[in-house]
């Protein structure tokens, strides 16, 4: 995916795959976030790039969170992959740039990640766009 992946590296698997202990606090934070969402409807955002994970911690955390039912892909300034985890309302949002390199990785605790929703500005512009289309159709039909 990223340019780095093209470099051939033999990764030595550590003999004892150990826990560095930084995944557990995140799980607790998620738990608080879920409670908050249920009680007040307030979403929570966790920037996984701001956590001092040890090697493999992040992968282990994501593996534990598992996969849920929904997966979505946004094409804007590169791809953004959005995936529900096995825990309802916990979403993984993976921001990639045009080269496919990760530029941010968030956990979002919300009914639906804000980025998936239609943005108000776009909604405001939507009727005008449709009007333009209708006008084109009415204006001759050859465009269709």
């Amino acid at each position: 995916m990223s340019a780095l992946d093209s470099i051939a590296i033999a990764v030595e698997v550590p003999r004892l795959a150990q826990e560095w202990g930084n995944a557990l606090p995140i799980l607790h934070e998620i738990r608080h976030g879920l409670e908050r969402l249920a009680a007040t409807g307030e979403p929570t955002l966790i920037d996984l790039r701001a956590i001092p994970f040890g090697p493999g911690d992040e992968a282990r955390l994501l593996e534990r969170l598992g996969r849920g039912e929904v997966e979505a892909r946004i094409h804007a300034l590169g791809e953004t992959l959005i995936r529900e985890t096995a825990i309802p309302a916990v979403w993984l949002v993976d921001f990639l740039n045009a080269e496919g390199e990760r530029i941010a990785l968030h956990l979002q605790i919300d009914r639906i990640p804000g980025l998936l929703m239609t943005q108000p500005e776009d909604l405001a512009e939507a009727p005008a766009r449709l009007d333009r289309l209708l006008k084109e159709l009415a204006g001759g039909g050859e465009a269709a």
Partner: peptide
């Protein structure tokens, strides 16, 4: 030609870059 979502994504990445909370 950057869409609204693209812009928001840019902002999310910028927040990460600035070491600011994503909120």
């Amino acid at each position: 030609g950057v869409s609204r979502r693209g812009f928001l994504k840019f902002c999310a990445a910028t927040a990460t870059m600035m070491a600011l909370p994503p909120t």
